[in-house]
């Protein structure tokens, strides 16, 4: 099932377009701001779009019906989708984060701490998982992206919750809700 979901994700042109633009955006922001992981605060938007697309693309062309007739056990199916998403996201996030660091290093001549790079990668991976879970719940890419950006860029900084710990607790909760909704509702 993970291979099927991975195959779906990798043959979706939007996957490559979104991740490619995210890398470009992050590089440009780093060149302008040139301070380590700060551009991630904005380029996480690319991962939000990626996660939401991965989930909501099921609802284009009636693909969800093909998915659920081929893999009718819904909880394992959605779990496989999230696992496949992580397999793609983690290396992509690492590339984006490290590219920012290499540019910073070249510009300022200082190596940032590897631990911070790992933290940024974990943050971006969780953001992607959260976005996919919200995508499953609302089943509409644009609505999911709007909700998530509103939360991540406006609400979370306001309530001082824009950190890895909040995300590490919140994402599994939203994911559990998505699994429950996916299992119970009519496709």
């Amino acid at each position: 099932m993970i291979r099927a979901e991975l195959s779906k994700l990798l043959t979706l042109p939007a996957t490559w377009v979104t991740l490619g633009w995210t890398l470009v955006l992050n590089t440009l922001l780093t060149l302008v701001i040139a301070v380590g992981d700060a551009p991630i605060a904005y380029s996480q938007a690319g991962f939000v779009v990626f996660g939401a697309l991965a989930a909501c693309s099921e609802y284009t062309g009636g693909q969800i019906r093909t998915t659920l007739t081929a893999m009718p056990r819904r909880v394992p199916q959605l779990a496989a989708k999230h696992a496949a998403l992580a397999v793609v996201t983690i290396p992509a996030a690492l590339v984006v984060v490290l590219s920012g660091r290499v540019i910073t290093m070249a510009a300022l001549g200082s190596w940032a701490v590897p631990w911070e790079a790992a933290e940024a990668t974990a943050y971006v991976t969780l953001v992607t998982a959260l976005s996919a879970a919200v995508g499953v719940l609302v089943r509409h890419t644009l609505a999911a992206v709007a909700l998530l950006l509103g939360y991540l860029l406006v609400v979370a900084p306001l309530i001082r919750a824009a950190d890895l710990a909040t995300l590490a607790i919140g994402t599994p909760v939203v994911l559990a809700a998505a699994l429950l909704a996916h299992r119970r509702r009519d496709a």
Partner: peptide, 8 residues
């Protein structure tokens, strides 16, 4: 319909 995503 086709049951397939249009961009695949």
């Amino acid at each position: 319909g086709s049951g397939a995503h249009r961009s695949r």
